[in-house]
Design a protein around this nucleic acid. Structure first.
Lengths: 200, 200
DNA sequence: TGAATAATAGAGTGGCTGCTCTGTTAATGT
DNA sequence: ACATTAACAGAGCAGCCACTCTATTATTCA
């Protein structure tokens, strides 16, 4: 089969699986449910993925190259502040994905008992951590700019904060949440002025 | 049977269940595994709890009165800062529980599909949210004390941050994490000075 | 064209699960 | 002492699950 077609069909299965995993968790999702949502037979599912576990991994593994590209773009920005805004902007945009909270909690649970999956998550986190740390270190070198925490710690808390926002994502209050999140991030990155449009 | 004995045996089962749920999740935990760990037969388990779901609820429901007591103590403190330290201190102490990350992620997943459990978690969160908001509002009334966020928002971010710390709890870096957490909390509560023992 | 392989469907299977049922022992109240 | 109820064990059951097997159709390529 044309490899492009193969990739597209595989991606469609992964998408259906992501929706099921997000709402029912890994163990709560039956392969039959994924097949129904994807409109395929079970034989087809196991033709593309050897096990349910491998299917779950695929949901997250597909994010690796995208994250890498975003990190590279942010690091290539002329200004570290611009790069940070770019990177955190992407992360905040992902808060609008209604599947995000469910997937995040399913992933955390799986990481507790699936070392291979834990390594996958670690790789994803490490990409972000490294890019954020580099950008923050560039900021800290600027005269008159001091960070309240060392660059690696600040980077970790930026990730923590965004993870936390994911977990409490409430559609009704998302605008407030993201505005406050930006305010806290501006403190973490040592900015004196308020973000544009804010006047508390 | 003596009701005290009944309560003690019930608690022992809940404890065994918590350990299983934390490491394998709700769906990944079989009632047989809980029975083995608790050293009882399946008949006994279902004599104390009608369903597995009810058993899982019990793991968290037992925290309700304890949280209520702590909130009352914090609100009764003479100084809002002292009350906040008391409350956040308890929350930070819970980071040392090795079961916490697993239970937290299991709870998040369950809240997605079990409305009754979601209500239970909401009740737990509401207790904390209310107490924190009250204490922060008292702080904001003080002359010369300004909070970077409104009291309810600040309260929510305090909970968010601690939840996030739970999820990323790493035994090796816990001291660093809690120290940094305290620093961020001192900013969120509008304190000017650094926490004692810190000199960045 | 024809052979080889990929793609797909879906019935079937062995194993596990939550829970029930029955029987037995211990505690309690009168 | 005795009746009643609580506490407990564990065999058994109906249902579900991940995955396999077989058969059929589509695609590729020499």
């Amino acid at each position: 089969m044309n490899p492009e077609v193969h990739a597209r069909r595989r991606a469609a299965i992964v998408e259906a699986a992501a929706a099921e995993f997000a709402t029912h968790g890994v163990d709560g999702t039956s392969t039959a449910a994924v097949c129904r949502r994807a409109g395929i037979g079970s034989g087809t599912l196991f033709h593309y993925f050897a096990t349910k576990r491998e299917l779950f991994h695929a949901v997250f593994a597909d994010d690796l190259p995208r994250t890498a590209r975003r990190c590279a773009e942010a690091l290539a920005a002329p200004d570290p502040d611009t790069g940070l805004d770019l990177l955190t902007g992407h992360l905040i945009d992902e808060l609008t994905d209604p599947l995000a909270p469910g997937l995040a909690s399913a992933a955390l649970l799986q990481a507790n008992r699936d070392p291979e999956f834990a390594r996958l998550l670690t790789a994803l986190d490490a990409q972000l951590q490294e890019a954020l740390t580099t950008l923050l270190a560039r900021l800290a070198e600027r005269p008159g700019r001091t960070l309240p925490l060392p660059a690696p710690s600040a980077a970790r808390w930026i990730r923590n904060l965004i993870d936390a926002a994911h977990l409490t994502a409430d559609a009704a209050e998302r605008d407030i949440t993201t505005a406050e999140l930006r305010l806290i991030l501006s403190w973490l990155t040592g900015r004196r002025e308020m973000p544009p449009g804010e006047s508390p």
